[in-house]
Design a protein around this nucleic acid. Structure first.
Length: 598
RNA sequence: GGUUCCGUAGCUCAACUGGAUAGAGCAUCUGCCUUCUAAGCAGACGGUUUUGGGUUCGAGUCCCAACGGAAUCACCA
């Protein structure tokens, strides 16, 4: 489509020169898709040209239209509506483009690894509790963006940093020691992450009881919170861990091991994976050297008490602490160290994309600014893939109030709903149990992924657990259904001995609706490019819905098997095949699989 | 209070980055299965794009102000 617009722009410039005698800047030529209610395919916006033509918009369009039809073979006819010149492009052109697109596999993808290496970080969970709905949005987003960047020609590394150390995991450890009675995933039948999460909750409950009794004994709230024996025990455990106390490290390894088994199972269900893992226990000491170096270069400064800071007030940000007065690291210190380490780990790394909630926008602004000031090349290309919170009708998810939507539970529920629906609709006849399970997951998970990815990442979104996710309308299953239906037609053609390898198409065979549909399909390469540039899977989701809706409408009254005119039949087969191909590769970028039947 | 993001149909979201009469889905009504899969299609209903100014041929989109919501402004991670 861009190619077409470039051709048309060239012609338009020539037309303006011939008609009005002026050379114009290509920037003023503006093409867009003609709205469906009007005749034509591409529309030239003529308002900006009236200054040159010194005519009314209508007269300007009229003149240019005449010139273009006369001099440009591509253009068959034109219509002027107000300040818009609608051009009808020849069916030959669309036919050729369709054939060209069909010959590419996958259509619209750039040469693999033709663009620089980028790193996409996502998930990055704490190891003290199971994954929840927020993680689902995070993982699907990050994974999808990684896929999109790959398709756009980038070399991509998918990573996560596992927050495996700190007071939070120590809380679970303390509680397990106190109340666990050596319970294991095996003995309890609980998934490892669920088991550890259970003790995190147990800690919190016991901790609160301790506070209550301290308060009852006359302590004030602050001291009660700080001096509850359980909290002291957890802090002590963290110290011992940092000293490398073998028993503590052993317990820590064991409990984290359980959590990893649990996470791995969830990731496998979600269909996401990673190329490389970072552990906070390995990276939390990083960054101090960088602080020292920055101090020498006067990027940072030291206060009288010995703490190290950076002053970003000139950049519209505040002063930010980088090293405590006792010389220990803060979160930012680690992140600086880890970011720099990654450039070392992956030579040629062009940029890092961090999939992290929008509550950390300020943090990443500061981080990128610091990296820039430290002289890290390309630091300003790094990107915080910031996404909005998933909100429940009653507000935010709060673990204390038990409103957290568990990832495993939701996935399971989606598959079950999909299965029930398939049974109700009579779609499972002749399928064995294994096939029903596969189908239910494809459809149920597809619905969930599409639901979470179709809204722009930056927006916070609403999720109502009671009103379950739809399977009809603008949904993943709607798209899957049309894929399946179209695939089935092609299969039946083959069974009937109708050739589905279309080498040539008669341009006369198309009707206007079909030329529209071809156009919609041909925007794909630019859609993909845009999604990659903006790190935004929702652009792809919306495209999938648009073409599917258009195809579904067309499908309704354009039969293929019963079409007696062979050139029409061939044309429709080629159109259907491109649709199938495009929808499959596009949805795959969202992590959504296509079922064989449904 | 400062900064950032957001406010579009009863609900959930779009709008090709300034273009034509602001579009979909859900919900509510009406039609369409003897016809390649009805998880579908066609139609109806639903809007002063929070409000008020401004910029221009043209504003949901850009600027200013107000109102409302969210995040952040930690020697937490």
């Amino acid at each position: 489509m861009r190619e077409l617009d470039q051709l048309l722009t060239k012609s338009a410039i020539q037309a303006i020169k011939d008609c009005f005698g002026d050379n114009v800047d290509p920037g003023i030529i503006q093409f867009q898709q003609t709205r469906v209610e009007f005749e034509g395919h591409r529309t030239l916006v003529v308002f900006p040209l009236t200054r040159i033509s010194k005519l009314s918009p209508e007269a300007t369009g009229e003149k240019l239209g005449q010139w273009l039809v006369q001099h440009e073979d591509l253009i068959q006819s034109y219509q002027v509506v107000k300040g818009f010149l609608n051009l009808s492009v020849s069916a030959d052109y669309w036919t050729n483009q369709l054939l060209r697109a069909s010959a590419m596999n996958p259509y619209g993808f750039q040469e693999p690894e033709s663009k620089p290496l980028v790193m996409v970080e996502y998930s990055s969970p704490n190891t003290n509790k199971p994954l929840h709905l927020g993680h689902l949005r995070n993982n699907f987003l990050g994974f999808s963006v990684a896929q999109i960047l790959k398709a756009a020609g980038h070399q991509v590394k998918k990573v996560q940093i596992i927050n495996d150390r700190g007071i939070h995991i120590c809380k679970s450890m303390v509680a397990w020691q106190r109340f666990g009675e050596n319970e294991t995933p095996e003995s309890s039948g609980l998934k490892g992450d669920k088991l550890v999460g259970k003790y995190y909750v147990a800690f919190d409950r016991a901790y609160k009881e301790e506070i209550q009794s301290l308060l009852a004994n006359g302590a004030d709230e602050d001291t009660a919170k700080k001096e509850a024996p359980l909290l002291i025990a957890a802090q002590e455990m963290l110290h011992q861990w940092e000293k490398g106390e073998p028993a503590v490290v052993e317990l820590w390894k064991q409990m984290n091991g359980w959590v990893y088994d649990g996470f791995d199972a969830t990731y496998a269900e979600m269909g996401v994976d990673f190329d490389h893992l970072y552990y906070e226990s390995n990276t939390y000491l990083l960054g101090k050297d960088e602080i020292a170096r920055g101090l020498k270069k006067n990027v940072f400064f030291q206060k009288d008490d010995g703490s190290v800071w950076i002053d970003l007030s000139e950049d519209g940000l505040d002063e930010k602490l980088l090293l405590r007065k006792d010389g220990t690291a803060v979160y930012m210190t680690q992140d600086i160290g880890t970011a720099i380490k990654r450039y070392e780990d992956f030579p040629g790394l062009d940029r890092q994309i961090y999939t992290v909630g929008n509550e950390q926008e300020y943090h990443f602004k500061v981080l990128f600014k610091i990296l820039e000031k430290l002289g890290v090349p390309g630091a300003n290309r790094n990107f915080h893939l910031s996404y909005g919170m998933v909100e429940l009708p009653e507000g935010k998810m709060k673990s204390r109030e038990g409103t957290v939507v568990d990832a495993d539970d939701l996935l399971k529920e989606m598959a079950e709903t999909a299965q029930q629906m398939a049974i109700d609709l009579g779609k499972v006849e002749g399928l064995d149990e294994e096939a029903i399970k596969t189908l239910s997951k494809q459809v149920g998970y597809g619905a969930l992924k599409y639901f979470l990815l179709k809204v722009s990442p930056t927006k916070s979104m609403m999720f109502d657990p009671k009103a379950s996710i739809d399977f009809i309308g603008n949904t993943g299953p709607f798209i899957q259904f049309n894929f399946v239906r179209a695939s089935s037609v092609i299969r039946k053609c083959q069974e009937a001995g109708i050739t589905t390898d279309i080498g040539a198409i008669d341009a006369e065979a198309w009707d206007e609706l079909e030329l529209r549909l071809i156009q919609d399909l041909l925007i794909w390469p630019e859609t993909l490019e845009l999604a990659a540039e903006q790190y935004d899977p929702s652009i792809i989701a919306n495209h999938c819905y648009e073409i599917t809706k258009a195809y579904s409408r067309w499908y309704q009254d354009h039969s293929i098997l019963k079409e007696s005119n062979t050139s029409k039949q061939h044309a429709r087969i080629s159109l259907t095949k491109l649709f199938i191909h495009e929808i499959e590769i596009a949805m795959k970028l969202l992590g959504v699989e296509m079922p064989e039947r449904m």
